[in-house]
């Protein structure tokens, strides 16, 4: 069995047939099949995604202590990094967990893209693949329905965005926006300015790139990205709080492109502490650091009490 056969047997066929089955029970609406399919995938991936999202939350909670370390070892960068790693290990932050969910999602994206192209094939070679990859149990039902209903709000889900339907260009924008919002809610600011800057850049660059590349993907795949991101936003909201959703509050170009974010309200360290704040801050964020610093001291006091016990 070659790599192509393994891919077809274990990735493409299950995904394709899952979509076809959903299509057959959801009133022959492929867009609905994609949405339900996305929800099912996210549910299946919860055991992988949740630790990552919790890890992000822990990173957010650690920001005050990381800043303390930065103040303490600011000149000795090597030592500071060692202490930061030590602190993260103690707090149970998984350093390598960030890429795993993306690695897992990767074959899903490609498999889903191929499934959409085969299911909604415009041209003979695409549809030939569908006939060969359908499970026999679905063959009768799907064969009688081919060509499948590929339209959603007038958009052809098998094609990339294109004129004359301007609405199709909304999907890449929504892909970028929902991804940015999800990243914004999940990404810790980082104690040092370099890390914060890097996180901020990734928060903006990745969504922009996904949005840009969505211009060449079928709109069905964009629909998957959007629904998946919305689920990610909701999950992250339950873990980190919902304040990140209020993206328009204090939104300015500098903040969007990696500058400091507005300060969280006093006592709101649970959800917003340290996110986006950097040491190269303006007068406004000086005040924030003071408040955060106070909160950090409180955390340290709690730890000391625990040690005494």
């Amino acid at each position: 069995m070659g790599i192509g056969d393994i891919w077809t047997t274990f990735i493409l066929r299950p995904m394709l047939n899952a979509l076809l089955w959903l299509y057959s029970i959801l009133g022959h609406q492929f867009w609905l099949a994609i949405i339900i399919f996305t929800i099912l995938i996210r549910v299946l991936m919860t055991p992988l995604m949740l630790p990552q999202q919790r890890s992000m939350k822990k990173m957010q909670d650690l920001q005050p202590q990381l800043k303390e370390l930065q103040k303490k070892y600011g000149k000795d960068r090597q030592r500071m990094l060692e202490e930061q790693m030590k602190l993260q290990r103690q707090a149970g932050v998984g350093l390598g967990s960030g890429c795993l969910p993306m690695l897992i999602q990767f074959p899903i994206w490609i498999g889903l893209y191929q499934s959409i192209i085969q299911s909604l094939g415009h041209q003979p070679l695409q549809l030939l693949g569908l006939s060969q990859n359908m499970y026999s149990g679905l063959r009768g039902m799907i064969s009688a329905a081919v060509p499948l209903n590929r339209f959603f709000l007038g958009m052809d889900l098998s094609l990339p965005p294109g004129m004359p339907l301007v609405l199709t260009y909304l999907l890449p924008i929504l892909v970028a926006f929902t991804m940015w919002l999800q990243s914004r809610m999940a990404t810790p600011g980082g104690a040092d300015s370099q890390m914060a800057s890097m996180n901020q850049s990734m928060t903006v660059m990745m969504p922009l790139m996904f949005g840009f590349f969505s211009l060449s993907f079928s709109t069905g795949l964009s629909l998957y990205f959007i629904v998946s991101n919305v689920i990610g936003i909701i999950t992250q909201g339950f873990i980190s709080g919902w304040k990140g959703l209020l993206f328009w509050k204090g939104l300015r170009l500098g903040g969007l492109l990696g500058g400091p974010r507005p300060a969280p309200a006093a006592g709101d360290s649970s959800s917003q502490a340290g996110r986006g704040e950097t040491s190269r801050s303006s007068a406004g964020s000086e005040v924030v650091e003071g408040k955060v610093g106070g909160t950090a001291s409180g955390v340290q006091r709690k730890k000391k009490r625990r040690r005494k016990r």
Binding site: I110, M209, S218
Partner: peptide
Amino acid sequence: LLLSVLVSACG
């Protein structure tokens, strides 16, 4: 890197 591969595979 993953995104690049995705683009070449899907786009």
